[in-house]
Amino acid sequence: MTVKGTVEYREIGTGAWVLVGENGTTYELGASAPDALLKSGLTVEVEGNVDENAMTLAAIGPVLEVKTFKEV
């Protein structure tokens, strides 16, 4: 799936990176997210999958495992 949105850092628990999608869903960026993506305010288009079996300490939204991304 492809999600367009903005990258943000959320102070929840020990902290989490999210992608606030233009589709109205906030995704938690999974462990596979490359460092280059983890920049607050970055507007990106991410290609990846939601991991239905993942649970996180941030519990802030579906976990999006990133395959590729590009800045828009």
């Binding site: 020990t14 079996n53 996180t56």
Partner: peptide
């Protein structure tokens, strides 16, 4: 059950 990144598997 959660890794250093803060996520883990239901299993």
């Amino acid at each position: 059950v959660l890794s250093a990144s803060g996520s883990g598997q239901i299993s």
